[in-house]
Every structure is written in C-alpha cells, then in structure tokens.
Design a binder for these strands. Structure first.
Lengths: 226, 226
DNA sequence: ACAAAAGTGTTAAGAATACACCCATGT
DNA sequence: ACATGGGTGTATTCTTAACACTTTTGT
C-alpha cells in the first residue's frame, strides 16, 4: 500500500441469483441489460454498490429496481462468492462482484426498469453476460448441498404444502428423481416439518395431508464429522 | 443507482486467515496493527485493495508486506467470505472486506513492516480487532468440513509424512482426537496418499512408513448426495 | 528388558438403497 | 368402475464406530 490519500478502490457490484420452483422446474431470475457492456444480453440482476450502503442493501436495491421485487419478497438470502471481474469486461476497470443466492416462491417480477425481468428454467438458459452461467451453476451446487443438511427448502415452498409438493421441489433443485418412500423417511428423520392438520382436497384423488416447516429460518440439521 | 458519474465505491479490504500446524496445534497468523483503528490490537493481516489489482493480488501483497511471506509461501488459498464492515469501525466509512483462507506448513513470518507477525494457537487467541475472532472461527469450520471430503490436508503437511503426523494434523484442525485404526481406514478409502517407499527412522521405536499426497491440488473426493 | 511409537481386523449398530401395493377421492 | 395422486414397510447393502494387542526400533 503506497499511501492512504492516493487510494482508489475497485468498483464494487452486487448481483443476485434468485431461484424459485415453477411447475416442477428450477427457475432463475434474469434481466436483459439495458446498457453496455453486454447490452441486450441476459444477465443476473445487479447494481453498483455505493459507499453509502452495504452489499445486502445494494442487493435489495438490485432486486427492487431491476425486477420490481419488494424488499421482503425473497424468502432466503445468503452470500455465495465474490469474483474479480477483469478490467477488460467493464468500462470502469477492474471490479469486485459480490454474488448472493436468493430463494423464494410465487415471485412475480415486474418490468420496473424496462430490463425485462424473467424467470428462466436453469436447464435451458440463453447466452449470458460475464461469467453468469458459471455463477448460476455454483449457486445451484450450493443449494443442492444445503438441501441435504438444512431446512433451506422452507424458502422454496409456500406456508403449507403436501409431501408430494416438497418432493417435487427437491427433485427440481437437485436435478434428479427421488424415491418416494425413502424421501419421506429422510424428511421425517430431519424433523424439519410438521403436519398442519389440514388436507388439500383438490383433484379426483385422495386428499393430501398438509405440512409446514417448523422454522422459517435456516437451521442446520445434520453434519457428519466423526 | 442514481447515475454513473457520481458513483463512489466502498473501500475494499482483503484479509487472510493463514493456518498452519505446529507441535500438534492449529495456529493462525496475526499481526499487531501499527495504525488506527484498533492500533496495537492483534488482527488478521490485510491491505486495502486498489483498483489496479485483483483481490488475490492484494492478498499476496498483504502476506508479503505484513508478514514477510513470499508469494508462493502459502500452499493453498481459497476465498472464505465477504463482510460488510460498518462505517463506525473505519475512518473511511463503509468497507467491504474480502476474506481468504490460506493453509501452509513450516512458515516463518518475518517482521517486514514492523507489524510483528506471529502465529497464535487458535484455542488461545488474544483480543482481536474487528470481527476477526468470528472470521477465524468460520475459517476453521470451513477447514474442518473440507478435511472430510477433499485432499486439502496436503497443504498442511510437508512433502513426506508419516500416518501419525497426518493424524496429528487432522486432530489439530478438527479439534478432536481420532481413532487410529478408523482414521487409517478412512484415509485409505479416500485414496489421496501413497507410500514413498522410504521410512522415517527417528527415535527409539519402530520406523514409520512415509507417504505423500498423490496430488498437490485440491481434489474433491466424496460427496454423499443420494 | 524396557520404553516408545508403528502397525494391524473384527464385530455391532446405524444409514442408505431398492422395491410394489393399497387408499381415498371425483367423475 | 376407473383414473388419479396419496400413502405405507421390509430386506439388503454399505458405512460408521468401538475396541487391544503385536511389531520394530534405540537405549
């Protein structure tokens, strides 16, 4: 460090990977960039983080201003990773990009800033700006892991849900089918949900018991060290 | 975001948590701050990251300038987490602090910048600046987890080592004793080390076979999803 | 011969996997 | 009565955990 006065920090950007499950598919929120670089390309919603706000405040601002999502809309948020973005990719030179993962359900993006916020199925993404494809893959990996040892799924489901809905959510997020009986045993063993006492009486079939998560906060349930 | 021209980014700092094992104890590298805030308090070595460098470059600079460690001295590095540091804790206002985890062995810090770089046992740390105590705990947790499903221990050991040395390193990092026979079975199952064919003939006891890691790069070995 | 660390297997319990049929409802 | 999704148990395999004695060396 050469001296405090001459210090110019890198640009700081904050981007969010928001997942939700729709019709048995894991979807990710993208916007279509209104400006260069990567004008018109699809990208994760993000903003420049200013000195007057924290990265999480900037994140909320990105979701609100780029996708019309109110502050409380995203049910769960955690930090994913911080990338150095090479100067070549941005007119302002080298940037540091802090990435967050968000999970929710029943989100309806609104075209607030004319950036066309849209949920895409993660398995059929368009060409993306920057390394956003890689970042989404990392976010999905994180989600996959946490599903197996936490109650994180609470954020992906409505307040009440049937076990089939829960299984569908897990399958969509994990990207693989699960055995119904084993899945139910495993969920029971985690002790993260409880029956509400009500039934979902839709359709020409036996009604489904409804459940809720015992906690609507992240809870680490199992870890196998020796 | 109000406009590109008026944008002032937060300060960006980069700090490193360097672990090594000495005499069966997990040690962490600290320096004694030469300036306010927290003047004279012990802290993780760190620097301000400037626009002309990436965070990993800044990290190397921190280790070199604050602790006299040459660029290649730290055998393994990974990013840990990025914290928002409240404006109250820093004269330049709100800062974003990118934390890295480093692992190595046989490091000898040199008092390059008169900041008194020293390794402390993680179980007996002095009062630390900022939230560095919490950060070190998070770093240790990360290390604990990775030890169980990667070959990350390669960075904590010399090129050749006995199984007892390896076990001691695991015990120090995990913070708990391990069963000798089970440990050896587990390491064998991971298939991350191989015998060198040589023996360590020190001391009044049976010589120990020496081993080396098959790879000196991070290798994910097992993950139990369904 | 003794001290000191190296080396080595088996058993029991628990977790994960594979797998198929009956139940309750609406039409 | 039939179509639809809801609900349930067991046997097998694999993984983890607990546990004690013999070997090789230097003094």
């Amino acid at each position: 460090m050469t001296g405090m006065y001459s210090y110019t920090p890198p640009t700081v950007t904050v981007d969010g990977v928001v997942f939700q499950i729709v019709a048995g598919q894991l979807m990710v929120l993208l916007i279509q960039r209104a400006r260069d670089p990567f004008k018109n390309a699809w990208a994760l919603p993000g903003v420049y983080c200013s000195r007057e706000e924290t990265t999480t405040e900037a994140l909320r601002r990105a979701w609100r201003s780029k996708a019309g999502l109110p502050a409380t809309a995203v049910a769960y948020t955690e930090q994913l990773y911080t990338f150095d973005v090479a100067a070549a990719q941005d007119p302002r030179g080298h940037a540091v990009s802090v990435i967050y993962l968000g999970l929710s359900h029943d989100l309806q993006p609104a075209g607030a800033n004319a950036e066309n916020p849209t949920f895409f199925a993660v398995d059929t993404l368009p060409q993306l700006a920057y390394e956003h494809q890689t970042i989404i893959a990392a976010a999905r990996e994180r989600l996959r892991n946490k599903l197996t040892y936490t109650n994180i799924a609470y954020a992906l489901l409505p307040k009440q849900f049937s076990l089939s809905q829960l299984q569908t959510a897990y399958e969509a997020a994990l990207g693989q089918p699960l055995d119904k009986r084993n899945f139910r045993k495993k969920i029971a063993a985690l002790e993260i949900i409880e029956p509400t006492g009500t039934y979902n009486k839709e359709g020409a079939h036996r009604p489904a018991r409804l459940y809720r998560f015992k906690q609507q906060q992240l809870q680490v349930v199992s870890r196998n060290l020796e």
